[in-house]
Structures are given as structure tokens and as C-alpha cells.
Design a protein around this nucleic acid. Structure first.
Lengths: 159, 159
DNA sequence: CATTTAGCTTGCAAATTGCAAGCGATTTTT
DNA sequence: AAAAATCGCTTGCAATTTGCAAGCTAAATG
């Protein structure tokens, strides 16, 4: 995976260094749909096998997925999400929600989610953990956090 | 932007056709930080100008940003987020949240957000709009939605 | 009028991609 | 047990995309 020059110290940039590839998100989506096998990913996504191999290795290296041997078939590998990987579900949901809202045709979204806990159709909303309300961009301000200086080791920072 | 073969009909794939590039998310992050000018993006991100030019054009074409002439300086262009673009804030927040949780050092996150509405530090959580509770992957099931068949026009679908 | 600046394009080498073929290990079939 | 098929992965290669430097045009500045 390539590096960015990205001079702003920000977790968005760090996340994109791990997940910032089109295929990664699609592989993870398939994983959330239950896929675990190499050929399953390949067939669903139409991805070149060398790239799939590379991306799965990357995801394992970065602790997002773990590779195990299939108990029933020694040839097969099982790629499963770690807790770190399962936590990406929130990102996948927001990607899906944006597409449902802005890219779906008049027919509506191609896929519907059900929140089994409450029984309703799931519409994912990003909320403030403290007050529980949906978050709008204009209602948020930002300031340096505790780890702000961390990246100064040798690297350029804006201004 | 390249097309995917992605045989699953799903808004995640559609979203990634528009946003599925590493630079796009970083450009949008800068936009959420208030950046509007070409050279501002270029300096913050260290992105090649030909790529920046290409991505900004792409974002305008896709209705995510709008390009205006700067009122004070006729040479300058202002790139601003449309409503469609502002709505990507939810995705940016989840990307940041994941990085804060899994990639920040011991010092903590490099950036802190404040939810001005309630005054607390903002920890973004993806919740179910219906019941208001945080969503976990294992609590969600999925089924075809109203627009499920839409993509059949000429394109292959899995199985 | 000369200089600087903003946004963008061009040229080119380097990296990444998709595609097809092939390989080793394991499983299934005959 | 031998032959065939399958799984995950690698290799070779052409095509696309990238980063970098240079240059170009229109507008602003001095």
C-alpha cells in the first residue's frame, strides 16, 4: 500500500493508510456478508487474483483479518474478521447509507437491513455518544488531542 | 475513476465508484476542515497537482462539490461541498473514529472533536435511527430491497 | 508593462492494475 | 492407487495510473 504525504495529523489519514483502497472496502463488505474463502471473494468481486491475494495478506498483516486453515478442507484458507476488523462495520454502514441516499434510483435501495435487536428496518445514523443525537458537520468543532505531537518524529507537519 | 466488476448489487459498491479513491477521502476531509482552494488542498495533502485537478473535477462532476469563482480574486476557484458532499461527513467521522480506536498511539487521538450542540467531546457512534441504540454487525440481517433488480440492465449479477 | 500567483496541462519514468497461464498442495473421482 | 479437479497463490506482460517537474494561461499586483 502506498504512503501519503498528508501533512495533517489525523486519524482519517491513518485509517486510509490501512483501508484506503477501493478493493479493501469491497473485500470487507463481502466478509460482513459472511464470505470467508479466497474463491468466494474472487467470484463476488471480479477482482484479479493477484490483487486479492495481496489485499488479503495486507489485511492479515494489519490485524483486520485472521487467516486460518479450513477444518473441513485442508486446501482452503478461512479469512475471518478480527475484532479490529469487525469494528469497520460502522464505516461500511455509512458508506452504504450514503449510497442508498444519493445513488439509489427511484426504486429505492437494492438492499435493506434489519436491526434484529429492535426489529425495525435499520437506517444507520452517526450520533454523539454523549447526547445520543445525530451529528451534523456544522455542529462540530475540533482541537488538537493528546496524541497531537506524536507524528513529529521526522515527518513534516503543515505549518 | 475505474469501474469494478463487483457483482453484488449494493450501495457500498456504488458509493465506492464515486468515493473509492484514497485521495478523495483526504480531499473531503480537508474540505470539512474548511479548505476551499486548490493550492490549500495541494499543500495540506502533498498530492500531485494533476491528480488533485482530476479528483476535484470528478467530485464536481458527481455533485459532491461545486466550483465557484472566488469573489475577491478572479484567479481563484472555490471548491465547496454540496449537500450531497456534506452528507459524507458521517463517513469521515467513522473513518476517524476507527483510527482513533485502533491506530492511535498510547498518547491518544491526535485530534479531538467537540459536539457544540451538547458541549461534550464527540465520540461518533453509528446508531439505529429507529431505536437509537448503537449497531453491532451481528445484530443486523439483510434482505433484497425495492431497488434490488435495478442493476440487471445488461450487467452480470452473482448467481 | 513586468512580475507574481492560481489553477491546470503536458511529458515522462515508475508503480500498479487486470488478465491469462501455470504451479504446488490437497481433495475427490475413477 | 492413479488420474483429475480444486484452492490459494505466483509469474509474466501489456495497459493504466501515479508522482514529479516543467510549462502555460488568465488574472492580480506592483
Amino acid at each position: 500500500m502506498k504512503k501519503y504525504n498528508d501533512f495533517r495529523v489525523c486519524s482519517v489519514g491513518r485509517t486510509l493508510e490501512v483501508l484506503g483502497d477501493k478493493w479493501i472496502f469491497l473485500i470487507l463488505r463481502e466478509a460482513f456478508f459472511g464470505e470467508t474463502h479466497f474463491d468466494g471473494f474472487a467470484k463476488s468481486l471480479g477482482i484479479a487474483t493477484n490483487v486479492l491475494s495481496d489485499r488479503l495478506r495486507w489485511l492479515v498483516q494489519n490485524g483486520v483479518m485472521k487467516k486460518e486453515k479450513d477444518a473441513n478442507d485442508g486446501r482452503r484458507a478461512c479469512y475471518r474478521l478480527t475484532r479490529k476488523g469487525l469494528d469497520i462495520y460502522a464505516i461500511t454502514l455509512t458508506l452504504m447509507q450514503w449510497g442508498d441516499r444519493w445513488l439509489a434510483g427511484d426504486d429505492g435501495p437494492p438492499l435493506t437491513l434489519t436491526h434484529k435487536t429492535c426489529g425495525n428496518t435499520l437506517t444507520p445514523v452517526v450520533c454523539c455518544e454523549a447526547c445520543g443525537k445525530p451529528v451534523l458537520a456544522r455542529e462540530v468543532s475540533w482541537q488538537p488531542g493528546p496524541g497531537a505531537k506524536e507524528k513529529k518524529r521526522g515527518e513534516k507537519i503543515k505549518e
